[in-house]
Structure formats: C-alpha cells, structure tokens
Write a protein that binds this DNA or RNA. Sequence first.
DNA 1: GGGTAGCCTG
DNA 2: CAGGCTACCC
Length: 147
Amino acid sequence: MFFFTRYPSSTLLKTYFPDVQFNRCITSQLIKWFSNFREFYYIQMEKFARQAILEEVTDSNHLMVSRDSELFRALNMHYNKGNDFEVPDRFLEVASRTLREFFSAVRTGKDSDPSWKKPIYKIISKLDSDIPDVFKSSSCLQELLQS
DNA sequence: GGGTAGCCTG
DNA sequence: CAGGCTACCC
C-alpha cells in the first residue's frame, strides 16, 4: 500500500480493512507502520541524494528512480520483499521527485536548517494516489503483517 | 485528553 | 519494526 500512499489517514486505513475490528491499539500500530515506512523511505532518499552530490552529479534532471536503480532495489526489498505485486509507475515518479527534492535541498545547503526536511515532506504528502480496491481485503493485511 | 507527526532508540 | 517521549491540534 505504501507504493500508493505515504500518508494514509486512519479513516482511510479503516475503510481498506472492513473486516478488521479496529481498536486503539491496532489503529495506532498501523499508523506507526506507515510512519516507520516513511522514515526508511526518506533515509534512503537522503542517502542516495548525498551520494549523487558526492559523485558530482550536476543535472538533477538525470536524477531519477528507475526499476533497475540501486535505490529502487533497496526500497523494493523493504516494502515488497517477495515481489508480491508490481510497483506502480506512479511510485517511481514520486520517488524520483523526492530524490530530486533532497538533492537540490542538500546542494543548496538548506540541510543546515534543522527542519529542512519539512518542506519536502509537505510536497511528497500531496502526491498520494488512490489505493486500488484489490487491497480491500483481509489477505492484504496478512501480507502487510508479513512485510 | 485523545489522536498524530516527528525524532530517537533498541 | 516497536516503544517511548515531545509537541501540536482538535
């Protein structure tokens, strides 16, 4: 699901697991998962953005996350270990956008500001897509639990 | 006060 | 990932 939405609300999550009896614990756990997912995501982004800068990449337009990139492999291994489904193109677009945002922020020295990531988070949070209805099943939660 | 986001830690 | 803590908002 993370490939579609990085910032799901609790109400959204609830609608996707209709057969789960949500209580305070389960809800907060799901929210926490996505928080952890985001942390990993952004850490990878920053890591590869800084790496690109060290490699003296100057053209951020050439900075993108393709299916054969190392960054993609890292993300896919984390969110889609068993290659249970195909990663949507939209996610690659969002990931590429994120990478460029980190790249230009670091390159222009904005990372000296303690809260320099906030603006990036805000941009990315607006790029969530609708989740396909296929995910509206309990089996999805099982997969989520396993990953 | 409960629900979250963000950050840190193990 | 989970736990714990701070800070913000409704």
